[in-house]
Amino acid sequence: MTIWTMMAKMSEGLGRTCAIFFLTLLFSLPLGLLVALLRMSKNRVVSGITKAYISVLRGTPLMLQLLAVTYGPFYLFGASVAREKLVPVVIAFSLNYAAYFAEIYRGGIESMSLGQYEAAEVLGYSRLQCFMRIILPQVIKRILPSVTNEIVTLVKDTSMAFTVAYQEMFTIGKQIANSQTSFLPFVIAGVFYFVFNAAVGWVMGRAEKRLSYYR
């Protein structure tokens, strides 16, 4: 098998890798914000539950969460397993990444001075208006580098979907490595991830630049 055949084969799985990546971001970024707000709630029950959610999802391996979401319903209730694994994979990834994003959001939100809330109140802003128009835009600017960190990790974590037999790019690479007794597919996979992350870095760099007004 030539290197080009290997690359072509692995590219077939790249679409599935991208599907995990984009769908996870789509769901986990808003979910993370929600979790962060609940975590900061004055209601002790609400903040306690979200605190527990974050500590469980950050404290256990993503691989176990993938297995739990995919096969948990079968072992607990005898429910049948989905044939298309994208749904359980995206659920597990989104739940996991939301926990990390929540703590990043919280750090950003808590770094805002209370004086801003007071000033907004004096100017007649409602609490929601104040948060959406004044606080959140500043928070996003501030947390962007930490978010980029997580996104870069997400690109590489997609390879873990193999645990539940989701045939993404790295799985195909392993199959080829195996049948050809060759290390080359792993090198190709490394290049794929690196290029993907270079693109992520470029996009996030531009976003940071565009948000660097007032500086």
Binding site: A79, S80, V81, R83, F162, V164, A165, Q167, T171, Q175
Partner: peptide
């Protein structure tokens, strides 16, 4: 065929109707 990580996953998938 769909490739899986180990036989436990293969067996679970079969029992749970995934394959």
């Amino acid at each position: 065929p769909v490739t899986m990580e180990n036989f436990t996953v293969c067996g679970t998938e079969l029992a749970a109707g995934g394959v």
